[in-house]
């Protein structure tokens, strides 16, 4: 493919030797593994750049988007979930749960294009696409980040709100909640101070699961909003069949996913003193 459609047998053989494709699979894998250990993910077969550097250059927008999305999702979902559990069975509860089903049903890019259509094309409030680094000014950064974070946060909000509600319902039926009410604490104090604290472990677990959705969603969101992050790098690499880059990105994303879930597991001990390792 690299040698071109007209490539001669010798040219193809030369490219194969350059890429190390003439060696046995096991040797290729061992070499790759050895390079990973020293942080070398190989070079792009498209433009020869080191994959590690390509990823590092693109990492800032992706981290910014992920953090903003988590912030949006958590600050919407936890109050919604608490509210739904507190008012269980009422129209508020049904409304929140209805929203959650909708949240699971709309793919990221559908929400993304819906937002662009409404906020950028019709109302002309926000820039259509692109990314501005926080160093260029926080206003610009926020204006470019609102829609992607909302689009990507939508499904996570649904997931977290559902889990918060379930977990809160369980806790709210406990005796110590009645005791807390009985000693005259306000509803807010009971809900946040007593119930939420005890409902935290399943909620944090769900955040770990949500990271998988987040990583898949980042790839799509960055494409929709033309944000030059690792997600867009992935898509470009797929379209060019740039295997070292695809491998590197999948490896890095998976490592992040595993590490975050490790952090989640470790946080249990902190959230619930009964859990000890």
């Amino acid at each position: 493919m690299i040698a071109g459609d007209q490539g001669t047998v010798e040219e193809v053989a030369k490219v194969r030797a350059q890429l190390g494709l003439d060696r046995p699979i096991a040797v290729q894998f061992a070499t790759w593994l050895g390079h990973i250990a020293i942080g070398d993910l190989g070079r792009s077969i498209y433009d020869g750049q080191p994959v590690t550097r390509m990823i590092l250059q693109r990492v800032e927008p992706t981290i910014a988007l992920s953090l903003c999305t988590l912030l949006v999702a958590l600050s919407l979902a936890i109050p919604l979930g608490i509210l739904a559990a507190w008012k269980a069975g009422t129209w508020i509860d049904r409304g929140v749960m209805g929203f959650a089903v909708l949240g699971f049903s709309f793919p990221v890019f559908v929400i993304g294009y819906g937002l662009i259509y409404l906020l950028s094309l019709k109302l002309e409030w926000l820039p259509v696409q692109g990314y501005a680094s926080p160093r260029e000014g926080l206003g610009e950064f926020a204006a470019h980040m609102v829609m992607p974070a909302l689009a990507l946060g939508w499904v996570l909000t649904a997931l977290f709100a559902r889990m918060t509600r379930t977990s809160m319902l369980e806790v709210l039926s406990q005796d110590y909640i009645r005791t807390a009410h009985a000693k005259g604490l306000s509803s807010l104090q009971v809900l946040v101070g007593h119930a939420l604290k005890n409902a935290a472990v399943p909620i944090v677990t769900t955040i770990g699961i949500g990271v998988a959705l987040l990583i898949g969603g980042v790839v799509v969101t960055e494409t929709v909003f033309a944000i030059p992050g690792v997600g867009l790098l992935t898509v470009d690499a797929i379209l060019r069949r740039d295997y070292p880059v695809i491998q590197g990105v999948v490896l890095v994303f998976s490592a992040v996913y595993v590490l975050i879930n490790l952090a989640v597991d470790l946080s249990y001990g902190f959230l619930d003193p009964r859990i000890r390792y």
Binding site: I215, V219, V220, I238, Q247, V250, Y257
Partner: peptide, 12 residues
């Protein structure tokens, strides 16, 4: 590996 990413990698 996050499911969407795994599917992307396999399709590639």
């Amino acid at each position: 590996i996050p499911p969407v990413l795994l599917a992307i990698a396999l399709m590639a």
